[in-house]
Nucleic acid binder design. Structure first.
Length: 679
RNA sequence: GCUGGCGUAGCUCAAUCGGUAGAGCACCGGUUUUGUAAACCGGCGGUUAGGGGUUCAAGUCCCCUUGCCAGCUCCA
């Protein structure tokens, strides 16, 4: 069925172009770039088969499909500009990304500088100016090879070789007729370069050809482009805002945490940061009582046999830290085999036998620092015989975990080597899974709503090709995850084959205050660990059964959650979490005694209150308290001393409130500072 | 881990071609006694990330190590 707006197109064509479908609508509405037919976007330059009944809709510059077209087209203009300015530079690929585009170049003279970016941007402006059309040509494989051979574009020829036989090979050209620039490209593209005025080059970076570190390093130029200069400006402002909120910057300014090179990528939470961190833990912990969780405390380092049982020794050691003891060292030195081992290690190193070397080194180690809590929880489960009556059993643990992350990936608090999770494992009977899952979802949403996150998207990651367990188990696990969502009426997206090798999972994607999305909590179904640890419970039938294990976390890593929460709030923690809830500032030193007394009183009411009694002027004290993001500034001058009151200034309302008595203020702040309810 | 960049006082940043390491804030002392985003004066503070090299002379040039930043790859 052809949609109504195409009615003016008289004949129904099987082979057609967007122009045929859109007719004079195209001339009336310059925002239209092409059409989307059965999920695929076609530009004005491309002919395609239109099957009857296909879903057809116009693609406009400012919708997501249109933006991708604009960005990809801008990438072509970037490559054009680069080849004009830096002859001898070879082109590779230049796709659109979530927020823009990039183009990878093989540039013999090394990386681009910031000045280069400015020059390239100016050149792009000139290329775009003429409103020159994009043109598409379909060519034979031989012609394509001949063309790019002549141009000495070896990467393009590699790409041509990768195009399956029988598929169309197309070229896109753009620019003034006398200086057209051509690229091997599937499209789609904008009608002409006039659509590409709102662009900005953002940064340069190295990247490998085809993402493989054995391949040559290319120079990647990142840029972004939008439908209009206004949209571009808005995006750049969002980037500015993100920079202002960067938790690494705020962490330093607000004295929340620090790092030291003696413990790289392992945060030190300073008193204020630790307060917020512990507040988040306390919040979950208090909720655990109502949700029926038991909390345990478990060791930090284990005999390696634990991880051999769990499978970490075979699959996870490159992410683990190891420990040793004097006893163990003495044992190793006393072992006559050691001398031989050292020779073998040296030989493996010389011959570059990485995996052999790893095996030898691992053989010397007998203690490892835990990267996850699940193995210890399995040990606890096995502490005694379990009955079906005690299932589901929910075991929570906030113990520290250590994972050796590769040097280049660590990032502030968001990706660290030492962290804790609001981790818990639910051991249950298979038929209890669904109920457990839906009550976890409810719990999860309650916590996020209470913390001011309302936009949450769920992805259901299903069975990957490489997996363990029976199809029956996978059917049951995926079914339970799906039905639990249906029951609470939540939409979700399926991420096919993205599950863990031992079970399917949810990924919760949470959107923050400035529109960025983060994967935080998770829930995973696991049949493997109960098998490996031979966990059992006695059923009503008196026989032994194997429980299912659910791994679940609401915050995920507390460190990472804190980093996002800092950026979400911009450091303006709500009163119930704020390390300092109110600060008394005296107008002059005449009010010092009352200021100290007020502080004593408010503290006696359980409030976290500091006082700035120093000789600075009021304005300076106010400024400092505001920079510290204290929720209430309590001004105390002669009037307040006389009335035993304070004059509060609210951070969140950004204005002065009426003066109120000490007791009344304490009452109000106490109410405001009680943790939010959820559920 | 890979590629590139960076590391100067607690913080933010200067230091021309290789030629005596400096400012503001913070901190300490003093003066000022202040009504909603920075009063004034003085002082303390440095083996320029660490190590090696080149040089008459190194913050500056070269090499190694380390940490950080951006990206790649990986991930909570």
């Amino acid at each position: 069925m052809v949609p109504s707006f195409f009615k003016e197109s008289t004949a129904f064509m099987s082979r057609c172009t967007a122009r045929d479908l859109l007719g004079d609508r195209l001339d009336r509405d310059k925002q239209i770039l092409g059409v989307k037919v059965a999920g695929k976007v076609y530009d004005l330059h491309t002919a395609f088969e239109l099957t009857e009944g296909a879903d057809v809709s116009p693609v406009r510059v400012d919708d997501p499909d249109g933006l991708r077209v604009v960005r990809h087209s801008t990438a072509h203009v970037l490559a054009d500009a680069v080849q004009r300015l830096f002859p001898g530079t070879k082109v590779t690929i230049g796709p659109a990304t979530a927020n823009g585009f990039y183009y990878d170049f093989d540039k013999p003279s090394g990386p681009f500088t910031d000045e280069d970016l400015a020059t390239i941007e100016a050149e792009m402006g000139r290329i775009v100016e003429g409103n020159h059309p994009f043109r598409r040509d379909v060519v034979s494989r031989d012609d394509a090879h001949a063309l790019f051979a002549k141009m000495n574009e070896s990467y393009k020829r590699e790409l041509i070789n990768a195009i399956p036989a029988g598929e169309e090979i197309s070229l896109y050209r753009h620019g003034a007729p006398e200086s057209e620039w051509v690229d091997l490209c599937e499209g789609p593209h904008v009608p002409h370069t006039g659509y590409l005025r709102a662009h900005k080059l953002v940064s340069v970076a190295g990247a490998y050809w085809r993402g493989d570190e054995r391949n040559p390093m290319l120079q990647r130029v990142y840029g972004t482009a939008f439908a209009s200069p206004g949209d571009l400006r808005k995006h750049l402002q969002q980037l500015e805002e993100a920079k202002k909120r960067d938790h690494r910057k705020l962490g330093k300014e607000l004295e929340l945490f620090m790092f030291h090179e003696y413990a790289p990528a392992m945060p030190f939470l300073l008193p204020k940061g630790a307060h917020v961190y512990n507040g988040l833990i306390d919040y979950i912990r208090s909720a655990y009582r109502g949700e029926g969780y038991d909390e345990v405390v478990t060791p930090q380092i284990f005999d390696k046999r634990l991880f051999e049982t769990s499978g970490h020794w075979a699959n996870y050691t490159e992410n683990m830290f190891f420990a040793t003891s004097e006893d163990r060292l003495a044992e190793l030195f006393a072992d006559p085999a050691l001398a031989g081992t050292i020779d073998k290690i040296q030989a493996a190193r010389r011959s570059g036998d990485e995996s052999g070397l790893q095996e030898l080194l691992k053989g010397l180690v007998d203690i490892a620092v835990k990267p996850m809590n699940c193995p210890s929880h399995c040990l606890i489960y096995r502490q005694r015989r379990r009955s079906y009556r005690e299932l589901p059993w929910r075991v929570a643990d906030f113990c520290r975990l250590h994972r050796y992350e590769r040097g280049g990936v660590v990032h502030g608090l968001a990706r660290v080597r030492s962290f804790a999770q609001d981790d818990a494992h639910i051991f249950c009977q298979p038929e209890q899974m669904e109920t457990e899952i839906s009550s976890f979802i409810r719990f999860f949403y309650g916590v996020y709503a209470a913390l001011g996150f309302t936009k949450i998207a769920i992805k259901l990651a299903t069975r990957p090709d490489k997996r363990i367990g029976t199809d029956e188990q996978w059917d049951m696990a995926e079914g339970a995850l799906e039905q639990a969502l249906a029951k609470v009426n939540l939409p979700f997206e399926v991420a096919p084959k993205e599950g863990a090798f031992y079970g399917p999972k949810y990924e919760f994607h949470v959107e923050d205050a400035i529109g960025r999305s983060w994967q935080l909590g998770t829930l995973q179904v696991d049949y493997a660990l109960p098998d490996r640890f031979e966990l059992e419970y006695t059923g009503t039938d008196g026989a032994a059964h194997r429980p299912v294990m659910l791994h679940r976390a609401i915050y995920g890593s507390l460190e990472r959650f804190l980093s996002i929460y800092i950026e979400h709030t911009g450091g303006n923690f709500p009163a119930w979490l704020a390390p300092e809830q109110a600060r008394i500032v005296t107008v002059s030193e005449k009010q010092v005694d009352y200021g100290a007394e007020a502080r004593r009183y408010l503290r006696s009411r359980g409030l976290r209150v500091e006082a700035d009694l120093g000789p600075d002027k009021l304005g300076a004290k106010i400024r400092e308290a505001r920079l510290a993001r204290v929720p209430y500034i309590l001004v105390v001058g002669d009037k307040e001393v006389e009335n035993r009151s304070v004059s509060p200034r609210s951070r969140d309302l950004d204005r002065n409130l009426d003066a109120e008595g000490l007791e009344a203020f304490a009452e109000r702040l106490q109410t405001e500072a009680s943790p939010p309810a959820f559920g």
